[in-house]
Simulated assay, not measured.
Amino acid sequence: MTTAPAPTARTGDARPRDVARQAVVAVSALVAVVGAVVGSGALGGTPIAEAGGGALSATATLVAPAGPAFAIWSVVYTGLVALAVHQLLPGRREDARQRRTGWWVAASLLLNAAWILTVQAGQVSASVVVIAALLVVLVVAFGRLVRSRPASRVEALVLDGTIGLYLGWVSIATVANTAAALKQAGLTSAEPAWAVAVLAVAALVGVVVARLGGGRLAYGAGLTWGLVWVAVGRSGDGESASTTAAVAAAVAAVVVAAATVAERLRSRSLSRAPRR
Rank of each mutant, 00 (worst) to 15 (best):
T2E: 14
T3A: 12
T3G: 04
P5L: 03
P5S: 06
A6L: 06
A9H: 14
R10V: 13
G12E: 07
D13Q: 11
D13P: 12
D18Q: 11
V19I: 01
A23Y: 05
A23G: 13
V24K: 14
A26P: 08
S28W: 02
S28F: 11
V31A: 11
S40V: 02
A42H: 07
P47D: 04
P47L: 04
I48T: 14
G54T: 04
S57C: 13
A58N: 09
T59E: 14
T59Y: 04
T59L: 11
T61P: 15
G67Y: 04
G67T: 05
A69L: 05
F70L: 06
S74G: 15
V75F: 09
Y77V: 09
T78M: 05
L80T: 07
V81D: 12
A82Y: 07
A84Q: 03
H86S: 02
L89Y: 08
R92G: 05
E94H: 03
A96F: 03
A96I: 03
R97A: 05
Q98V: 14
R99A: 09
G102P: 12
G102E: 06
W103V: 06
V105E: 11
L109N: 05
A114L: 14
A114M: 05
W115F: 11
W115Q: 03
W115T: 08
I116W: 14
T118G: 01
Q120P: 08
G122L: 12
V129C: 12
I131D: 04
A132N: 04
A132E: 02
V137E: 08
A141R: 09
F142V: 00
L145W: 00
A151L: 07
S152L: 09
R153N: 11
E155W: 10
E155G: 06
A156T: 06
V158H: 10
L159I: 02
D160L: 01
G161V: 10
Y166I: 02
L167H: 12
V170M: 10
I172M: 11
A179T: 06
A179N: 10
A179F: 03
A181T: 07
K183I: 00
A185E: 06
E191A: 15
V198S: 02
L204A: 14
V207H: 05
A210W: 14
L212W: 13
L217D: 13
Y219I: 00
A221K: 13
G222Q: 13
G222I: 07
L223N: 01
L223H: 00
L223S: 05
L227K: 08
V228Q: 07
V230Y: 08
G233M: 10
S235A: 15
G238R: 09
E239A: 15
A249I: 09
A252Y: 08
A252P: 11
A262Q: 11
L265C: 03
L265D: 00
R266N: 09
S267P: 13
R268C: 12
R272M: 07
P274D: 01
R275C: 12
